[in-house]
């Protein structure tokens, strides 16, 4: 079974994250960059499926040169090879353009059975790229999986949403996105880290995946950020120490705010 995992490098949620003053795109230099945690779970799920069914796991990532580190992490967990779409022209691409690029990159691979993505990234949080890629590939989407089963022919998931838990099924090829409840990702072993250094990573340009440079990037994005700034600091509130009347004091505060 040939499995593709979509992985994204994101600024670490623990570092200070901001947009650049010049063009309102993500300021990647200001924060530590990591493989998004949810994508470690996506890789884990792909490895579990491969262990059960056999096959190959290919990591696909769109991002600047530095995203190589995220790709290496996925390879050191056990993925077999990677496709890195990296091109200056991609700078500032929005969700629609990102989905187009990822779908085109998947299209360069032979006989893919299953694509696994994270449900939502921690930076952009569009929560839509997996569905958009499925739309572009013309494949069924089975998203927000907290459990995934596949026999190599079809796939079934438990999908957890606001409405409850649904069982969703489709024939392969299909796209699945996973939530953080699906598994605990393995740590790369020392052996895995050494092996990852020799695994094949093909770096593709926009032209290599069959798109033209004027279809992607800031200049042609269907959305435009018109302004951005740090949020004004919140005014410091009141802090009191409970001397035995803390609960009553909170109610007094709430009643002053007309909240009770």
């Amino acid at each position: 079974m040939n499995i593709v995992v979509l992985v994204k490098q994101v600024p670490d949620t623990w570092s200070e994250r901001k947009l650049s003053d010049a063009d309102h795109t993500l300021d990647r230099a200001s924060a530590d960059a990591v493989l998004d945690e949810i994508n470690e779970r996506a890789v884990e799920e792909a490895l579990l499926a491969k262990e059960a069914q056999g096959g190959e796991v290919t990591v696909v990532c769109m991002g600047p040169e530095r995203a190589n580190e995220a790709i290496r992490k996925a390879l050191s967990m056990g993925a077999d090879s990677a496709v890195h779409v990296s091109d200056e022209a991609l700078h500032g691409s929005d969700a629609v353009q990102t989905a187009r690029t990822l779908a085109a990159a998947i299209g360069t691979l032979e006989s893919v059975d299953l694509v696994i993505a994270g449900n939502e990234s921690t930076d952009g949080r569009a929560g839509a790229v997996p569905a958009m890629v499925a739309e572009l590939l013309g494949w069924p989407q089975l998203t927000y999986a907290r459990k995934l089963d596949t026999d190599g022919q079809s796939v079934s998931i438990e999908r957890e949403s606001d409405a409850g838990v649904a069982t969703v099924e489709a024939n392969l090829p299909a796209l699945v996105s996973v939530t953080e409840k699906i598994n605990e990702p393995r740590y790369p072993s020392f052996k895995g880290i050494m092996a990852a250094k020799k695994k094949p990573v093909s770096t593709l340009s926009v032209a290599d995946v069959g798109l033209s440079a004027d279809e992607v990037g800031l200049g042609s994005a269907p959305t435009q950020v018109v302004s951005s700034a740090p949020a004004p600091p919140k005014e410091a509130g009141v802090k009191v120490t409970d001397e035995g009347e803390g609960g009553v004091q909170i109610v007094e505060f709430l009643s002053g705010q007309k909240l009770v």
Binding site: T13, D123, V225, V226, P230
Partner: peptide, 13 residues
Amino acid sequence: LFGGAYQASAKAT
């Protein structure tokens, strides 16, 4: 954005 630390406005073309 970023958990309330940043704000932006955007439009579609």
